[in-house]
């Protein structure tokens, strides 16, 4: 039996500024995950490190420990590997005033 794997699009062409998060995603069947962020337009201002977050219920969140430096140029790609995450995953980024980025965030899961 081949192991399952799945690519989920968590955010597509979303303009991120201030406090931005992906929608919660359940992936309890997967043992490992990789999150990619690609910038679709030229980012504005300083780009923060995004934070991978875990949750017991999809409602309350806390940092998983992985950080992901958001790209500083158009078509830049950043990535974080995640394991032992339970079920819920999301990505969160806090931008300075005036800073923003248009991103596509993809989650790659493998059982």
């Amino acid at each position: 039996m081949l192991s399952e794997n799945f690519t989920a699009i968590l955010a597509r062409n979303e303009d991120w500024s201030a406090v931005a998060t992906t929608e919660p995603y359940e992936a309890g069947w997967a043992r490992e995950a990789v999150i990619f962020v690609r910038t679709l337009k030229e980012p504005q201002g300083p780009q923060p490190k995004a934070i991978v977050e875990l949750s017991p219920d999809g409602i309350r969140w806390l940092p998983e420990g992985s950080l992901l430096q958001l790209p500083e140029t158009k078509d830049g790609i950043a990535m974080a590997r995640i394991a032992h995450f339970g079920n819920w995953l999301r990505l969160r980024a806090v931008f300075d005033d005036g800073a923003s980025s248009t991103v596509i965030v993809t989650l790659h899961l493998k059982s």
Binding site: A8, D57, N87
Partner: peptide, 23 residues
């Protein structure tokens, strides 16, 4: 460009597999 996508579709995200875990 993805900017040409109608807003109704732009809001869609990927379905997921769930065990219906509740707090």
């Amino acid at each position: 460009t993805l900017d040409t996508m109608l807003p109704g579709y732009a809001q869609h995200t990927s379905a997921m597999l769930s065990t219906l875990g509740h707090w």
